[in-house]
Design a protein around this nucleic acid. Structure first.
Lengths: 211, 211, 211, 211
DNA sequence: CATGAATGAGTATTCATTCAT
DNA sequence: AATGAATGAATACTCATTCAT
């Protein structure tokens, strides 16, 4: 289940090996970037021979696709775990920010690798194919929340959901890219984003909210 | 900078060569990324031998620094050209957006290369040294404008200038990174950013605004 | 042939497997040459795992020997099938040409693989050991026929059987090597070979001819 | 001009290097076959680094083409050196055999490499492109001599020049392929070939022969 | 008998960099 | 200042072979 460098664990199933390889590759991408990624290093970290690596993942291209897929899986499963249909727009947006913070705290490699792959996707169609759906889905979730929020009056009436979604994504991705580990900074950014979209005239009449 | 006006050709060509090399390198970074950058390709594009390239720029590291410097020069000179001290915050912010649009229209490589280098700066301190001042200066300019705007009442009173600046930078950089060439999209984004920070109660005709 | 009739499945399969492997190997040698021969490809074509292939044929060298043996078997059995002792030299030579034509028509791989192995035999003594007897036997058969034909006056009196045999072998092997599938060409070649050796003064109606 | 393994000879011109590489490659093909040819070995024998080898000959495919070309050059220049127009068919054919013997004695690699490439040409169109003209030219020369000889009555009237040419080529190539260094054998073969085509009724002293 | 996984020893090719001219 | 030639150190990928099950 978990081989961290030192544990040799001979003769694993391909699925387990591929998972371990994806994990090691992601770590290494964080450390050295996609350009600094070496099959040898990955094999070493997994504790297998390079040839064994190639047995499970035939080419480096396939390897990067594997990384992209592993990211996609992790990234997209997020919204499946906690059902949010019953919440209002603001609540769901809050959940987004909480989830995101959780991610950059617990699995900081996700966003860094994601950012690397975004850069690479511009020139590599195969990466683009794996990355674009993630961006698209994220954007759509935000657009949906924002649109609903505008309809319900919690967000500015003049809010244009599409660019607003891009703005939010750009803001948080930009934060992660900078390598900033300062979570206060993250909270200040989130607070500002919330103010940027909220309807200043909104009266939380029936629910009588706290703030 | 280093060439003495009276000596016309022999001595100054190094600087010319370096400029040409920087230009070619930037083009190639756009096409293939920093990771796909090859000294041979640069030399070919400049029309010189690889050995000659190394004569002018000794190592690849120095080359990337040269690129970063050339970017810095271009990026930072922007705000020097047009004096803006006399304008109000909103006007200056508008100028920012116009300048930025001009840049991505006229020299689309600037932002793409910039984005590449941001990614690289995370692992390469020498790049970081060249890149960080640019980000810092940009952020400071935005913070200044935003702070002034808040003071003058044109921007939201509850606007937190620092994260707001990051938000704006992230939004436009994110737009460029996506490789989007749709300038309508850019204008929609800019419009949304303006609404995101503006003071909804601001009376533009009135010079001394009220709450 | 080697499996004992009463034991039906378990024991005989190794021989069957080896035969199937030899067949697949020969096909692949025709397609890609000995140098392009891959154990994996053979295993795939036979429908077994590479490890299984190695169980039946331990090394690649053994594999090539197996191919050579299979060729030898096929090649040398030819002259056993039809008893020819009763025929005269010319008739037996005709049979040789007919047999050969049958072979390159029905099992075109035999000569192509043979030619590959001849080339390889020059450097690989183990292959030479398997190939040389075939060449030797073939040459001897031709020498015998030619010698008899000379004795009987059907072939030129000044014919030197040994080099003549080499000439004939070289001619037909050369034809096959070229990858030529034109059987008219083959017949023209054969006709020329026959004229090249025949005794121009031979009187066919006369059974006991003298010079 | 001549670097034989031990002489390092730094900084040669590309043409010289390519010639040396072709020479070394041919030696190695004789020793280990095309399939056993290793870029490293060639570089070692030339006395250069592998990377230097690739500088002069970019890929292995190009290397084999270079070998084929070098062969072509040597093989085809043969008939240019000594003008033979004034000779009669038999004389010219004799010259062919003498030339050929000279070749297998002085440059025994030529025919061995040639034979290797013939084998390879069946699957590699690029090699075929270099090899086929050689075969074609050789065949044409023989056909021309044979046709003239038939016309002049020195060769059999029923001789079919085309297959006869193939027969002769096959015979001598077959001789070389066998790795036979026995020149007596060669002479016996040649003698037999001559008898195989000659007109038994030809009167040499008589200039205007009769049927 | 069969197989999925593993591996050592290659193998061509790449690339930044250096050197002699 | 410029260049053709040269090179060391990598690098992804291959392949026959082995091992545990």
């Amino acid at each position: 289940m978990s081989e961290i460098a030192s544990i040799p664990s001979k003769r694993e199933s391909t699925d387990d090996r591929r998972a371990a390889i994806a994990r090691a590759a992601r770590q290494l991408i964080v450390e050295k970037g996609v350009e600094g990624l070496r099959t040898r290093d990955i094999a070493d970290r997994v504790g297998i021979n390079v040839a064994t690596l190639h047995y499970h993942v035939p080419t480096k291209e396939a390897l990067i696709e594997l990384v992209a897929e592993s990211l996609k899986f992790e990234f997209m499963s997020q919204h499946v775990v906690r059902p949010r249909a019953h919440m209002d727009a603001m609540g769901r947006m809050d959940m987004e920010f909480v989830d995101f913070r959780e991610m950059i705290e617990d699995r900081p490699d996700v966003m860094l690798v994601f950012s690397e792959l975004i850069e690479r996707a511009r020139r590599d169609e195969r990466i683009a194919v794996a990355i674009r759906p993630m961006l698209r889905k994220w954007r759509q979730i935000l657009i949906d929340i924002l649109s609903e929020g505008v309809r319900d009056g919690v967000y500015r009436a003049d809010l244009d959901a599409e660019p607003a979604a891009l703005m939010m994504m750009g803001a948080v991705v930009g934060f992660c890219r900078s390598g900033n580990k300062d979570f206060d900074g993250y909270e200040r950014l989130v607070a500002e984003l919330k103010r940027a979209i909220r309807n200043p005239n909104y009266q939380p009449q029936d629910t009588h909210s706290k703030d």
